[in-house]
């Protein structure tokens, strides 16, 4: 684990240095990344130009949902988003070059083509988070602050677990990165809006099947003092870290199984 983090750091630093060979391009793509995710937010603002509330949620409340999922996804994308390039490495055979190095494969693949520009999404999300926090009429007790921080971190961990599972899946189907995107980017778009505007079946699906609801919906609803549409017991709102641990655990198991299978079949 420690060695994995060390290797990740080494490789990510090399990519950052490679990137700095093209400084202007880096500045532009970082801006582009922030602008791209900001457009989602503009869509929400435009909606609120016509309505007072969305599914019973005020603009500041939706902004809080938007910000928490953006920062969580942004962190996970920065750390593990590069796993989506795994399929290409398997296809062209360059994965083998990573397997003959004295370093954990996961750390090497996760840091492969590390894209610092992804801090754009995180920065933009943090900006909206600050705005939402100042606009919301909430008493920011220690408990609430702690819950907010835990929500963002656990949300990032849930997305990390999904990225890992998606990476494992690419050993089976090399162009499966799209499937993973539907859960990460697709999930992110879903979570930007209040659960009350979606069909109950969908909300149930992202609570119990792919537990995206734990990224921000359930803990943020608690933060805002609202009940969840499924009427789950109150303690469930605090379960995000546990759910994150389970999702990451499943991701890790899938990854190990996939690597083992790759090394016995070769493709």
């Amino acid at each position: 684990m420690v060695e994995g983090i060390r290797i990740y750091g080494l490789i990510a630093a090399m990519w950052v240095r490679s990137l700095m060979a093209y400084r202007l391009s880096f500045a532009l793509t970082t801006l582009g990344s922030a602008a791209g995710s900001f457009l989602d937010y503009v869509a929400i603002l435009i909606m609120f130009a016509h309505v007072e509330a969305l599914g019973g949620f005020s603009v500041a409340e939706v902004a809080l949902l938007y910000a928490t999922t953006s920062v969580s996804l942004g962190l996970a994308e920065l750390l593990l988003g590069n796993l989506s390039g795994l399929g290409r490495r398997i296809r062209d055979g360059t994965l083998d070059a990573l397997l003959v190095r004295p370093a954990p494969l996961f750390a090497q693949v996760a840091a492969d083509r590390f894209q610092l520009r992804r801090i754009g999404r995180i920065g933009q999300g943090l900006g909206v988070l600050v705005w939402a926090v100042t606009r919301l009429d909430l008493d920011w007790t220690v408990g609430r602050v702690l819950l907010l921080v835990t929500t963002v971190v656990a949300g990032a961990a849930i997305f990390c677990g999904i990225y890992t599972a998606g990476g494992a899946f690419q050993f089976v189907a090399q162009d499966a990165a799209e499937v993973q995107s539907s859960f990460t980017y697709g999930g992110n778009t879903l979570l930007q809006y209040p659960p009350t505007i979606f069909a109950r079946e969908l909300v149930r699906g992202v609570t119990f099947v792919v537990p995206l609801a734990f990224v921000n919906w359930l803990p943020t609803l608690r933060l805002l003092g609202r009940d969840d549409p499924l009427g789950l017991p109150g303690w469930v709102d605090f379960m995000s870290p546990v759910v994150a641990a389970v999702v990451c655990g499943i991701g890790a198991l899938l990854w190990r199984a996939a690597v083992r299978s790759y090394r016995s079949t070769g493709s």
Partner: peptide, 11 residues
């Protein structure tokens, strides 16, 4: 395939 087994890539 032989080289991959010698280097530990393949089992």
């Amino acid at each position: 395939t032989t080289i991959k087994m010698l280097t530990g890539i393949l089992t």
